[in-house]
């Protein structure tokens, strides 16, 4: 992967996260933060995959980072957390695999379709689990905050 390709990927992730935020009508103040959180999650995912960590671990780390970063953003901006993590999640969605699954089912190649279905299930599961782990961190942090006051 050349540097230019890498730059295009980061720019594409940022723009698409921002644009998805517009589609679900996120307040303008929150858009920029959401975009950068999306880039952060995607970068973690990408580097994990590039260094041979596999897509399941990659998605898990990406979703985890998005979850934790969203809470920090929510705290800084004093806005609900879902404004940041919903658009940031979009670049991690297994769109390609889901499409290949549908296509192969439609064309009657069930064996291939099941392979892709497994991937979709694994990726969705790892994203969900990443969120779960980030929630753990968030709750610990909230508890710590409450104690400090």
């Amino acid at each position: 992967m050349t540097l230019l390709e890498f730059f295009i990927e980061v720019a594409g992730t940022y723009v698409s996260t921002l644009a998805f935020g517009v589609l679900i009508n996120i307040p303008r103040r929150a858009l920029n933060f959401g975009g950068w959180i999306g880039v952060l999650g995607f970068l973690l995912y990408r580097f994990t995959v590039l260094s041979g960590g596999g897509y399941v671990v990659g998605n898990l780390l990406g979703a985890f980072a998005i979850g934790v970063a969203s809470l920090q953003a929510a705290r800084i901006k004093k806005m609900p957390m879902i404004l940041f993590n919903i658009p940031a999640l979009v670049p991690l969605v297994p769109g390609g695999q889901a499409y290949q699954m549908i296509k192969n089912f439609a064309l009657g190649q069930n064996a291939t379709a099941f392979v892709f279905m497994m991937q979709v299930v694994m990726i969705s599961g790892s994203i969900a689990f990443g969120f779960l782990l980030s929630e753990l961190v968030n709750r610990v942090q909230q508890r710590a905050w409450r104690h400090r006051r």
């Binding site: 594409g12 992730t13 698409s16 998805f20």
Partner: peptide, 8 residues
């Protein structure tokens, strides 16, 4: 959303 994600 469509174009950049297609490239990504």
């Amino acid at each position: 959303v469509s174009g950049p994600l297609e490239v990504v």
